[in-house]
């Protein structure tokens, strides 16, 4: 038990170090881009018709503390970030924690639901397709999954929107309908949210499922042919029992391992889909902050939260793996 705790603590420590390193890279990349927060903010104010001089930019720079050395600013930022405090958005001048609020959880929920959906479908379907000899089934599964892999998500979103606009006269955009947009959370609002959230989950889930099916199928195909499976079947284990107890369990390790990676991939795809569907969640805010308003503070906070989620998931999968896989368990517990 002590060894296991030590293992968990080491993993947690490594996760935190990873997070700090990533934050340093993110912070440095933002530093390399020409123009800082002061300039961005005043450029934004300029589009609203106020005349601005270089002296204004300098004054703003001093006010924001941007004249301080880079390492000092990063240090301050990272200490605050671990306490869940990300300062104010550069452009909007709103507190980022309040601005993000539930948005990050909505994004995470959409991604995790897509991920869950993907594996709920992919694991059985992948196993069937790896072991089935039916060419029609195999080919149609392959077709659907290649389609999911090949078609860009934003195109799928645009096509669904266009279809819905022409047929139903509703462009299916937004996370809430008009009457619930500004309302407090209630049962009706949740229902309203679900009635809209299925679309991004579906779009993100399709390509994730396609990807996961390919993974499961490849792993299974690899395992089914191995000698231990042959040996098991020679001992009379057969059918579903054989698949689940032997090759499927072996394939599970790499799949659990790839969960964090898959979440990252889904989250990477979320902003574009969210932008098209005008979902106001963290993904679209990230694109907005990175590509449109150049809001370093906001983008940094979202990327930090995202990294934290992925590192967190990886930590959890490591632990799960240690608990489920006897080989890993034995290597830790000795």
């Amino acid at each position: 038990m002590f060894q296991f705790a030590r293992f968990a603590a080491t993993r947690a420590g490594l996760a935190i170090i990873t997070l700090i390193m990533v934050s340093f890279i993110v912070f440095s990349l933002m530093e390399l881009v020409p123009g800082d927060c002061a300039e961005r903010y005043l450029a934004f104010k300029n589009t609203q018709g106020s005349g601005i001089s270089v002296a204004d930019i300098e004054a703003e720079r001093n006010r924001l503390g941007l004249d301080k050395p880079y390492i000092v600013r990063w240090g301050k930022w990272i200490v605050n970030a671990f306490q869940g405090e990300y300062g104010d958005s550069c452009i909007l001048r709103l507190n980022i924690s309040q601005l993000l609020g539930e948005k990050f959880w909505i994004s995470l929920a959409i991604c995790l639901t897509s991920l869950l959906l993907a594996y709920l479908i992919a694991i059985p379907v992948g196993i069937i397709s790896a072991t089935s000899k039916n060419p029609l089934l195999n080919n149609s599964l392959r077709f659907v999954s290649y389609l999911g892999l090949a078609m860009p998500n934003f195109l799928l979103a645009l096509m669904i929107m266009l279809f819905s606009t022409i047929v139903f006269g509703d462009s299916l955009t937004g996370l809430f309908s008009k009457e619930f947009r500004d309302a407090a959370w209630s049962y009706e609002r949740v229902v309203d949210f679900l009635s809209r959230a299925w679309l991004p989950v579906f779009i993100l889930g399709w390509s994730a499922t396609a990807f996961a099916i390919q993974t499961v199928r490849a792993l299974m195909s690899d395992e089914v042919g191995k000698l231990y499976v042959l040996a098991a079947s020679a001992r009379g284990v057969s059918g579903r029992r054989l698949l689940w107890r032997y090759p499927a369990r072996h394939s599970l390790g790499p799949i659990i391992n790839s969960l964090g990676f898959d979440l990252n991939r889904i989250f990477n795809e979320l902003p574009i889909v969210a932008l098209i569907l005008t979902l106001t969640e963290a993904g679209s805010l990230l694109i907005e902050a990175l590509a449109r308003s150049n809001d370093q503070q906001l983008a940094g906070a979202i990327i930090f939260l995202l990294t934290a989620s992925i590192v967190g998931i990886n930590f959890i999968t490591d632990i799960i793996l240690a608990l489920t896989d006897p080989r890993v368990r034995r290597s830790i517990l000795g």
Partner: peptide, 11 residues
Amino acid sequence: IYVNEDEVRLL
């Protein structure tokens, strides 16, 4: 409502 995507605005 906020729409910041040219194509979606057009749609």
